[in-house]
Amino acid sequence: MKFLDQLFEQRSRQLAQHSSRRGMLKGLGALLVGGASIPLLPVARAAAQSPGRPVEEGDPSSCDYWRYCAIDGFLCDCCGGTANTCPPGTEMSPVTWIGTCHNPADGRNYVISYNDCCGKSSCGACLCMRDEGDRPIYRPDKTNDINWCLGTSSAAYHCSTAIVVGLAFEE
């Protein structure tokens, strides 16, 4: 125990001789200011803008909206829902068809899931048929010509959403 006492005493004295309270405050201040400035760096800004957070421009009730590049159906945004949500009284299909769309606002490609809203008859408003990347029905996972109300309690199609799943992988 005496050895430990001597060791701590020695170290404490060394610390007191070689450092100052101002020095400690200086170091602490530098750490706080430096830490706070890290989110301003380009690396941090790029990370903050990754998947699910595209720069949004355009009108989600228009067929020209960037996320609708492969849509074939009625826009939920015109039917009491939004580009991300189903109108009240309908159920979102968990089974969906997926493609990619280019977002001109940030110049990046995103994976888009066209989840249909089901359980009511066709909405009838804002019919859009852009069909980019649509494939014949013999590629069932890449065709939008089938009713995607699968896995829902009702197969009645009402409208389509266009949900951003993530950033597309670029080779």
């Binding site: 068809w97 493609g99 799943v165 993530g166 992988f169």
Partner: peptide, 10 residues
């Protein structure tokens, strides 16, 4: 990405 594009839909 490959899972999302080829499997996730179903």
């Amino acid at each position: 990405f490959d899972y999302q594009m080829n499997c996730q839909g179903c």
